[in-house]
Write a protein that binds this DNA or RNA. Structure first.
Lengths: 339, 339
DNA sequence: TTGTAGGCGTTATCAC
DNA sequence: GTGATAACGCCTACAA
């Protein structure tokens, strides 16, 4: 693949490269005929400007980087839709990479994004990421970064998060109000702060109502259906089936439901369940799953707006954290306990 | 953000830029002390090599572009996982963009990928894409491109597709064998060739068994849950509920099931259903959905291998089409009709 | 209106 | 070992 350059065109047409260059950037004056001649010839020769060379001069790429841990669950795809909504109309391209929940991969993504000269970065940290020096450095250098959903307190960047604490509390209180007492929390990866927040919310609700909430009431499961399945199998084997379950997200809840049903437990009569995130699956599963609705697409939009501000601002604005609220969607899986 | 360059380092250290450059690329001979001095100073000054400048000289970026129509359904995310598996161990970065089922957007993605100098491109066409001149041109210029799943016959590139015709035929025959006669096909966007293939498979099966298969046996629905819902609502309203349904994919099937159940129809007793793609939801819905399993991750891996071949080959290999086979997963939604 | 020439940040090929 | 210097492809003062 031999690329045609403006030099080639200039040579063929016996004009200078400057003239050719000007013919393409119409802010300069070029005689109409020569311009047309050049454009015509360029097309004929199959010329395409080399964007790399251009980028060497200009300083922005109109590319935005997005790094997410995974997109098997629909959560991140939905956030990305919001991100795209904002950037597309501003003529930015959105480049997506996935870290696969792996810190090493995330670092590679990060470096690669910088190499490709994105103008800004939206990132949701991987499960493994305890601390990212590289990202910290980037932020220190005033590179525009906005964290969303999976954030780290150590990073001095703008953040968009969900009020996980509050809505975990509400979700748990909902079960309590429905008459359940022995409630268990199936949590996700413990080093994620949002998971910790949900745990805190769960504990707070239990304490507030004087219910037992020891170590055996919180079980680490995961965030995928299989995680919920495995954990529930284990709980059933060891005879630790509670009256109700608050799961850290819908897939985990659904995995648990699947196993419970398989073992003949009735939901919600034997075990009531509440999920988190209100995915499409919540409506499909039977009985339909009570869940906390999160404004996913909005999260993307807001994060995008924050980033845009940073990119266009003269002086770097000080970091802000925006906390989004949700909504409890009550369905059959958490119907009132029979007395 | 002022970038530090090798010039700055050279100036400060009173050496030439050449020496600084050499210190970083250790294939040249530099005195140990000077190298260490330079590296040390570089770190101190916060120097980062400018990859754009580098790319101007070298010719490849070690970036691979992937363009998909959407990733709300889990199909494409799973394919991407396969793609990543192959490229990561080869030290390529995978850049993902989504066209949002929109031809205009897809074109922007395409241009942007080229601008970012990806070494090769994996693409699944948007629903709207009838014909992409830009892509055609790219392929003509021997730019490495592999199409997967959503392909176009007009493009002379390598392709990885699923044997939609055959497995749609099998899925339909399965319903016929179970004793159903009045079978309807809920299809997807008609201008996608894979959708046409599934329609052909459905028709063939019906004809083969002497069953009626007129225009009213094939209804265009879509590929999302909502599409299945809307279509089923319409069918129920107009009193056109068949004995069995073969849906173009799982979400459509599940949407239809949801509405059928809401209206009191029993599955499979009143209406049997078969889906396509075997998504996670198929196991979760009740009754569990019979579906065609597709090797999604494998599709990604194979497409990636094909692309890698093209990228590394001296002379462009002639395009190949690889057709993947699937598997019928029988569950309750298609149990035998009662006589 | 057009041409000349310098520069963007890096690497590679000469010399010394 | 190291320093000039010419590329890479494009843009843009400045001159003409």
């Amino acid at each position: 693949m031999q690329y045609i350059t403006i030099k080639d065109i200039a040579r063929v047409l016996n004009v200078s490269v400057a003239t050719v260059s000007r013919a393409f950037n119409d802010k300069y004056d070029v005689k109409k005929e020569t311009r047309e001649l050049i454009l015509q010839k360029a097309r004929e020769m199959g010329y395409k400007p080399n964007p790399i060379a251009r980028k060497l001069l200009q300083k922005h790429s109109y590319n935005i980087g997005v790094i997410v841990p995974e997109f098997i669950n629909s959560f991140f795809p939905q956030v990305i839709i919001g991100i795209q909504q904002v950037f597309l109309e501003r003529n930015y391209q959105v480049i997506i990479m996935q870290s696969n929940e792996c810190a090493e991969m995330e670092l590679k993504n990060l470096i690669s994004m910088e190499n490709n000269m994105v103008d800004g970065l939206l990132i949701s940290l991987s499960r493994e990421t305890q601390h990212s020096e590289y990202l910290e450095q980037l932020i220190k250098e005033n590179f525009p970064v906005v964290l969303f959903n999976r954030v780290s307190e150590n990073l001095a960047a703008s953040k968009v998060v969900f009020n996980d604490y509050k809505w975990a509390l509400f979700a748990t209180e909902h079960l309590i109000e429905q008459g359940y007492r022995n409630i268990m929390h199936l949590s996700g990866p413990l080093n994620l702060s949002l998971i910790q927040d949900r745990i805190r919310g769960f504990k707070k609700a239990m304490e507030k109502h004087g219910l037992p909430c020891g170590a055996d009431h919180i079980v680490e499961a995961g965030i995928f259906i299989e995680d919920g399945e495995k954990t529930m199998e284990r709980l059933i084997e060891t005879g630790r089936v509670p009256e109700a379950i608050f799961a850290t997200n819908d897939p985990t809840a659904i995995g648990a439901m699947k196993v419970l049903k398989k073992h003949g437990f009735k939901i919600p009569q034997d075990v009531a369940i509440v999920g988190f995130s209100n995915t499409q699956m919540a409506e499909i599963v039977e009985p339909a799953l009570t869940s906390i609705e999160q404004p996913t697409t909005e999260m993307g939009r807001i994060a995008a707006e924050l980033l845009l501000e940073q990119i266009t601002a003269e002086t770097p604005p000080s970091p802000r954290t925006i906390t989004l609220e949700g909504k409890l969607i009550v369905r059959e899986s958490s119907e009132k306990a029979k007395k």
